[in-house]
Simulated assay, not measured.
Amino acid sequence: MVNVSQNFSECLNNWGKRKIPFVFLIDFLAQKPVAWRLDEINPSEILFDFNGFSNAESDAAADIPPGFYFHKEPVSFEVYRNKFAHVVKNLRAGNSFLVNLSVPTPIETNLGLKDIFRFSNAPYRFWLKDQFVCFSPEIFIKINGKRISSFPMKGTIDASFPNAEKVILADPKEAAEHATIVDLIRNDISIVADQVWVERYRYIEPVKTNQKTLLQVSSEIAGILPDHFDGEFGELLLKLLPAGSISGAPKPSTLQIIKDAEGYDRGYYTGVMGYFDGENFESAVMIRYIENQDGKLVFKSGGGITAKSDAQSEYQELIDKVYLPFAHAPAPVL
C-alpha cells in the first residue's frame, strides 16, 4: 500500500505504464491518498465493487434482515440555515458561483458497515474495515484507450413528486447549477485532454433507496487524451481534483468557503475511488458515505448552493440523501 501524495502519484503512474492492476482512494483534499496493487488486497480488510470490477462475492440473493432499522438525526434547520447563509453571502459577494455545502448526520442502524456494503444496490461500492462504507451512484472519470469521460450529477428530486422529471428539468435554479458544473468539468477535462465536448446534457437517472426513489440529473463530458499519455493516472488525477461536482467554482475560493461554512473534516467523503484493470480506468466520486467515528455512525451528505437556492429545499435534499440503497428491502423499523 502507498499513502503519501508524491509516492501515490508516482506509483499510479508506474503501475499504469506497466499495466499493473490497482485500486485507490483519494480523500477530498488529497492529503491521505492510498493505493493497493490488486494482488495485495486482503478481502477481510477491503471490499470493492466498481461497476462489476470486484473482489466481493455476489450477494444479490442475500436476504436483508426483516427487522432492520435505520434512524437518522439530521442537524436542525437553524444550524443548517446559518451555514447556508454564510455560503449565500459569499456567493452574492462574487467569491463563488456554486458551493457544495455538506453536513454530517448521525445515524443508527442494526446493520454493520460490511452488511451495508453487501446489501447496497449501487454501481460503485467500497468498504474499509472499521472505517467507512461508500455506495456511490456518481462516476468521476472513465478512461478507455485515449477517450476520457466524466459524468457529474447535479440536481435531485423525489420521484413521487408530481411530474418530478419535468419539474426538476424546468427549475431555473437547478438548470443554472447544472450548467455551472458542466462548464467547470469541461474546463477541468481540458487540462488533460486535447479535445473536449459535451456528449449528453441533463439526462435523468433513477436512484432507488430503502425509503423512496430519487431522480438525479447527470451530464456526460468527454475528451481525447494526448498521444503521449501512457498511463500516468496519478498525475492526471491530481490535476483534476477535487471533483467539481462536490466542491464548486472557482475551486480555490470555493474550498475556503466550504472550510469556513462546514466546520468539520470531510475526510474521504467527496474524494475519489477507483481502479485500473490493466486496460481500463474507472473512478467514482465518494458520495453516499457512512463513517465510523469512535463506534458511532455518521452519514455525510450535501448539495450544491447557488445565489438562487432556497434554504428549506436544500435542507430537505441533504436529508433525502441520507439513505440506504436497498432496492428490495423490507420496510425499516421506525
Rank of each mutant, 00 (worst) to 15 (best):
C11S: 15
R18A: 13
G302H: 10
V196A: 10
F84N: 04
L25P: 00
I258C: 02
R37T: 13
F126Q: 07
V167C: 02
D230L: 04
S44D: 11
S245N: 05
A243Y: 02
L297G: 01
K208Q: 14
E235Q: 08
L324E: 14
G248D: 01
K251V: 10
E165Y: 01
D183M: 07
A122D: 03
V217Q: 07
L324H: 09
I143V: 14
E57T: 06
V198N: 12
T209C: 08
P106S: 14
Y264A: 07
D158I: 12
K173I: 10
N163F: 03
P226Y: 02
L334P: 01
N42T: 01
G302Q: 11
N121E: 14
L255G: 03
G304H: 06
L29F: 08
V207S: 02
K208Y: 09
T270C: 13
F299Q: 08
I189A: 00
V88Y: 01
K259R: 15
E138C: 06
F132C: 07
V333Q: 11
G145E: 11
D294F: 09
G248R: 08
D115P: 09
Q131K: 14
E40Y: 08
G302T: 12
V207I: 15
W15F: 06
E40G: 06
A311Y: 00
N55C: 09
L225N: 11
I143M: 01
A193W: 01
K300L: 12
D59I: 01
E73Y: 15
D115A: 12
F22Y: 11
A122H: 06
N7I: 07
S160R: 05
G231H: 01
E78N: 11
R288I: 15
P250K: 12
G16M: 02
F22S: 10
D310R: 02
G234M: 12
F276W: 12
P65L: 06
